[in-house]
Structures are given as C-alpha cells and as structure tokens.
Design a protein around this nucleic acid. Sequence first.
RNA 1: GCGGGCGUAGUUCAAUGGUAGAACUCCAGCCUUCCAAGCUGGUCACACGGGUUCGAUUCCCGUCGCCCGCUCCA
Length: 587
Amino acid sequence: MGTPAPVGKLDTLVSLCKRRGFIFQSSEIYGGINGFWDYGPLGCELKSNIRQSWWQSMVRLREDVVGLDATIIMHPAAWKASGHLDTFSDPMCTCKSCKKLMRADQTWEMLADNELGASLTELHANGQPDSGRVEGWCNGRGKGLAPGLAAVRNPDAVLAAVGTRLAGTAFRNFVSLLASENPAALVQPCPHCGGELTEPRPFNLMFKTIVGPVEDPANVAYLRPETAQSIFAQFLNVITTSRQSVPFGIAQVGKSFRNEVTPRNFTFRSREFEQMELEFFIRPDEAIELICGRVATLADNPDLSAPQENWGWQVWHKYWVEQRLAWYRRIGLPDASLVQYWQEPKELAHYARACVDIQYAFPFGVQELEGIAARSDFDLTQHQKHSGKTMEVFDEPLKLAAAKLDEAARAAFADKVAAEWAGRGKSADDARAFVAKLFEGRYIPHVIEPSAGVDRLALALLCNAYAEEPVTDDKGKTETRVVLRFSPRIAPVKVAVFPLMKNKPELYAKAREIFGQLQRRWNCFWDESGAIGRRYRRMDEAGTPFCVTIDFQTLEDGTVTLRDRDTMKQERLSVAALKEKLDDSLI
RNA sequence: GCGGGCGUAGUUCAAUGGUAGAACUCCAGCCUUCCAAGCUGGUCACACGGGUUCGAUUCCCGUCGCCCGCUCCA
C-alpha cells in the first residue's frame, strides 16, 4: 500500500469532486450561487450512506430513540421562543477605518477585553484623566494602538474641542469624546483601531419567506436554521404516541438554512445544509437524586458502555460524546484526525452547561463536525413559556420515590436544592417550586444534543479518503494513482462488475448475470469499456472498494476475480463466496 | 459586507484586437486473457451583461463565481 497523501490544497479535491460527480456548484450554468452546492451521482450516494449509518446507529439499533421528520418552515413563534429571531438578526457595524465587521452590541465588550481598552482605562484614571497624559498618549502609544482614533489622527483639534469635558466623565463617554471629530455628535469607536463605526445595520441570518399568496409582513415565515426546534415543538406528540419515557431521544435528519456572512471552504460552510440531530431527554439531576439516592458524575469514573439509572447530566453528556466518537471511527475517520474540544465555561451559551465540539483536521484547519451540548431544560422551558403548553412529563418512579420521604426529609431536600440553585445564580423561589413539582413526579426534561453536519462529514470523509500514490507498471513507468480510500460501509459504489472483454458474447452474458445478482444487494457499477486497468483506476477515483472481473475461467468453473481497491491485489473465488465476503465487509 | 487575487473544453495549461490550440479525460469502433496499453474517429471552452471598435476571448465598466485575508459561525 502506498503512502496516503493528505489533501494539501482543497482545490485538488474540489476538482476531483466535480470530475467524478461528487459535488457540483449549484446552478452552475447560471454562474453559480454562493454558498450552495449540489451532490452528483456519487455524492448523493455518499450522503445517503452517511445518513443511513447515522440513523442505524442512533435510532434502529437503540430502543430509546425514535425518529421525526418535520417541516422546514415552522410557525414563526417557534423562532421567537428558541431565541433565533433575536440572536439571528443582530445589528452589525463596520469600522470606516479598518473595515472590520462586528456585532454592534459587542463593541464595548470587545474594547474591554483588549489592549486598547486596557490602555484607555488606565488613561481614564477613574474619571480623572490628566490632560497632559492624554495628549502624550495620543502622540505616542495611541498611534500604535488606535491609529483610527480621531484624537490620535488629529490630537490638537480634537483635544481642544473637547477641552475640559474629559474630566469627571464616565469611561464610555470619555472614549467617545476622543473618538469624535465633532464633540457634539459622539461616535462609538472601533475596538480594533479606534476608527469611526458605521450605524448598526440589521443582519438577517435566517432566510425569510412568505407563507400564502399575499406578501404581507404578517405572513413572514423562516426557513429553519436548525432541525432541533421542531423536535422540541413536537415533544409532547412524540412522547404521547411513541410509548417512550424519559430518558429517551428523538432523532431527525434534514435540511437547515443559514444566511451565513461568509460561505467558505467548499461545502464546509454552506447556506443550505443538512443536519443529523438527536435531542436526548433526561431527568434533572435532582430527580435522579430522589430516585437513586445519589447522582453519578464523572468523578465516579462510570462505565459508559450502557446507560444506568443513576447517571446525571454530566455522565449522559460524556456517554454521548463517546458514542459519537465511536461512530466516527466506525465510518472510517481515524482517531488521530479527530479532536475533542471542550468549550471553556466562558464560551458556553448562557443556557448550556457543557459543550464538546468534535472537530476534524481539514486541509483548511481544524473545524467542527459536530457539537454535543448539554442544554439543560432551556429549550422545552422556552417553548412552554411561548406556547402556553406544559412540557412537563410525569415520572412514576420519581413520584413513588418522593412519596417515601417524610416531611423533614422533603424540607431538607428543598433547602439543599434551593442552596445549590442560589449558588448558580438562580432564584430560591424557583428552586422550591421546581422541587414541589418533583415531589409530584413532574419536571421539564433536560436535554443532551449531539448535532452533526452531514455535508461537513461528507467533506471530511472525502478529505480523509483522498490519497495519491506512485504506481510502477511492468515497463518500469511510474504514474500517480488517485484513490479514495472510503470505508467500504460508506463508499458510494460498493462493487464494480467488469467483463474482461466486451466483444465475447458468452463472457458478456455471464458478467451481466452476476451483475444482476449483486445489484439486488449493493450499489453496483457496470463498466465494459476500455482496458481493464483503466476501469480499475476509474473505480479508484470513485472510491469503490471492490471490483469483480468475469473472465474465461468464470465460464469454466464459475469463479471470478475480486480486486481490492487499497492493495490492488486480486483473489479468485466463487460467486457464493464472493457474496459472503462482500456481506462481511459491507454490513 | 470590506480589501486583494483569479475566471479559456470535464481537468491541467496555451495563444490572440480578425471566428481559439494541446495533453489527459470522455464517447464510438477496432484490437486486447487483469491495472489509466495501441490504432481510428468523435464530442466539448473564451463565466455573464454592457461599452469602445468595422470587428472584443483579448481593452474598459458592471454583475456573478472561486481563492486568500478581515468578519460571522446560537
């Protein structure tokens, strides 16, 4: 086997994807459209195999996960509840000097976090800036830190104009005075260079559309930016019809849409993309404690091979991380190419308790394939608030466990939970109301969310599979063989079938017969044209793991040759043995 | 959205103010008893739209797309 050559530049892969029919630019005959990609004959098989493998492992092989296939367009209120309507339309500013783009509501925060901000804070001296120092700063250090700041570009005029107003003023006002050519109209400075920011402009990260024939603001709806929300919105229907109870999960695969600022890196960041999401609902830790007496955490070093009754959210979260990593290994991504990135507490969304990114080392950098978040009961709570429908479940074991406690034990438990919640900055009253519900066997489930991108994974599999290797023929001529070493389980075409020669009718007929048999079980490819070696190489570029050739010996003893993509070795075996071998490799 | 670079067959590259050329690929035929062989023939391109010009693939403008950087990434 030759040395796998990593895809150094994405261009080579993009070119192969087009040449072999994996991925095309959307609407290419019209010049293409930025951020949208189509999957050709091989690409759609690859994606289909990814989806099927995911579904198999997440739904079919489990008894505690069921499926859902919801619409892309939902009631707009769902997006209000989820928070997307607000967070996906953040006003953005551009700096007129350095041209950087940033969220308008974060500029002060960014300033507070950087060197420029620190330097200005020092200069501000709690509202008692020294005018000499300010002037010195503008002529000195400020030139490096804030080349765009008005007071740096033009210190004499600006400092004269603001005069004594610098003293005794608040920090933001102080900075704004330095940032403005016109002290009457204060501007907010760019946190990067001190330059003038444009007025905040709205950015719409969700695609809008109109439902119904009348184009009226009341009819605005959105293409979903994630599939997860429909799972939460259908939570009650699924739980009442599926005979599942917490802990259990709802899985969904489907398209999502985000009006990305910058689609980049081939299909990696697309505006239309496909997600594979699981929302796995679990009991709140407090319920586990009532039922089991104690909550298992990672500190207990739990065995993660099979779920246990006493697992708290932390263990469930870790369990899903391990499950997902095992799946990536199974479909052919080596451990060495995967990175587990545990988000720092300050990076987490406010409702998230933990989030792990599973990242892959793409040619353009280590980037996220999947995020596994512990989202507490945030989502269901939001939908409960906005829809007015209760998202509480009734948990019989919990009610029975609570019934065994006497008044004193209940009070002690309530006190303990109230104290814990207070420690996390939550209201003690809420904690007591929550505990009262728990004693009735009721709670809003918490959720662990493994959310993966189909397109990103397809790209990772392509990058991982791509290899170039030198091949020397009998005459000593060396050429480069391009081969996609997909795991057979996700390879778009499993078996290619070739008659050794096409102008021998008996050979041809036998080959067609065998092709017909294999075709019923696997995605097969028929190729009768060109030299046999050429046909093998074509299949190498498509990533087809096996090629079966029917030759004259087949007519005599019924055996065929099976050629292995990776080793290029051949073995001769009967058709029955061939099927068995393929079964072993492909299922 | 901003700045820079780029845009010629499927791919990789030429040439040109006067109707675009090659290699490989692809297709067909012949040949061929296992790794891109050979022979013959064939298909396929100046991203799109304006402008200048007798004439534009070439010069100019705009749009779109791709790449790089900034930015965004619940």
